[in-house]
Structures are given as C-alpha cells and as structure tokens.
Write a protein that binds this DNA or RNA. Structure first.
Lengths: 119, 119
DNA sequence: CACTCATATTCCTCTTAGGGAATATGTCTT
DNA sequence: AAGACATATTCCCTAAGAGGAATATGAGTG
C-alpha cells in the first residue's frame, strides 16, 4: 500500500471530489460548479488523484469525464481487511490473558504490578 | 470519513509505523530503533496518528506502549466497502447497456475501440 | 532527594503543497 | 481557419509540515 494513495485522499477538497465521484462520472466543470472550487484548483486536485491511481479520465466531446478507479479501492479494502483480521487474533489472546489472570489471581489493589519480560 | 485519517496515513514514515504496529504494541523507543528514525520524530508522528484516532498509547513502567485502534480501521473498512458496493451496481448498468446495444443491433458508425477480451 | 531513562515539546530551517490570477493547450463548431 | 468553450499548466505567494538539535516533562530507582 502506497502512502501516496492516502496522501491523495488526505486533502479535504480532494476527499470531497472522491465523494462526489461516488455518484458517477463527472466532468471537471461540473465538479468545480458543484463543490464551489475554481476550475484550475479542481484540475490540480484531479492530477494528484490521477497520479495516485484513484481516478481516471476519459475525453468526451470537449470535456474530460472523471471517474473512480475500482482497483484502487479494492487495494485499499484488502489492506484494511488485513488489519481487521488482527483484532480477532488479539481478542483471542486477550481472552487467554484474562483467563490466565483470573485463574492465577483474582485480586488487585493500590499498586499496579509491572509486567516483566523485556530484559 | 475524515480527511485527517488519510492525511495521517499519507506520510511514508507514519505508514511504516502503522505497519510495524500491526505486529503488536510497541514502545516509542522500539519504533525509533526498528525504523531508524530519531525518537523526537517518532513522537511527533505518533502525535499525528493519535490525534487522527489511528493509535492509542498506554503507559507501562516508564515507557509508552502504542497500539492500533481497531475502530479506526473498521471505519475505514466501512467507507471502502460503501464504494465497492458501487462497482456491482455499475456493472449491472453496464450489463444492461450492453444488452440494449445488442438488442438494438445497429452497428457501424463511430464505434472506434473495443475492449480486448474473448475473441 | 538526586539521578537516570523514556518520551514529549520547542525552536529553527527548508521544502512542499495549496489557493489566486493569468495563460497555454486542446477540441468542437461554424 | 477563426472563434468559443473546456481543461491543463504556470507563476507567485503564503502557510503547513517534516527533519535536526536541544531541552522540558515525567516516571522509576538508588
């Protein structure tokens, strides 16, 4: 996963553009009009999104219609999924830990004990 | 979905930190040592990640152990999913379009390109 | 309490990114 | 080909962000 993808989405206006494109392909001028951004800024933002692989454009008549690129979101989804798989494992470990603690001791008072293990 | 989450992940070193934390909770010093970044920079990056809700820290002895925050990734996952649902709808529309075109059966004209596929 | 280790914060500098205005490129239309 | 429209690019300026070095805060240990 490239940081540039996140960087592209990390700018508020660009995220708005992406949310707008969610509704379907839109031209540069329409993006500018809908979001109240000036056309040159829109073109700049689209350039960043395009180079990050988030959007693509297709010329139609004399305008350029921009649309989202599914594979970018698939990659993102895979990445996030690979993290979500961790919580389950962790929760299992936590369950084990709690079970162990409960079995070992069931009392705790003022002084929190220091967990040892790192030399 | 807040742009700040993406912005936090959009910096290469910070993304590295997140990838490292995937393996489990780590102290600031260990992050610095593992990634070859100086401690102050690590603290700064962690501050950004923390304020974006991506990581949390817990004091253990005299260090601070940082770990990922599941809810942040869940939110991310939901967001991405809401996009992936679109492709299917779009593909349905495309299917309809193709069906219509085939039914109409009026070829010739300015149909310049065809996606390569099964011949 | 003084000391030390671990982390956070500050100050400085420099590069980069974003907005505004103007202009260049490109593409239909007539 | 000239003109009109749509988009991209450039220049300028300002501000945000990231690294380096030094220092402040905080927590545990003798």
């Amino acid at each position: 996963m490239h940081a540039s993808t996140f960087a592209a989405l990390g700018e508020p206006k660009r995220l708005e553009i992406v949310e707008l494109l969610r509704r379907g392909p839109v031209s540069v001028g329409d993006i500018a009009g809908t979001l109240g951004i000036r056309q040159p800024q829109v073109s700049k933002h689209l350039k960043v999104l395009r180079e990050a692989g988030v959007v693509e454009d297709e010329p139609v008549a004399r305008r350029r219609i921009y649309h989202l690129v599914p594979s970018a979101f698939e990659e993102l989804g895979d990445w996030v999924e690979s993290f979500e798989a961790l919580w389950e494992r962790r929760l299992d470990s936590l369950g084990d830990l709690l079970t162990t603690m409960q079995a070992t001791r069931s009392d705790a008072q003022t002084t929190p004990e220091e967990k040892e293990g790192s030399p």
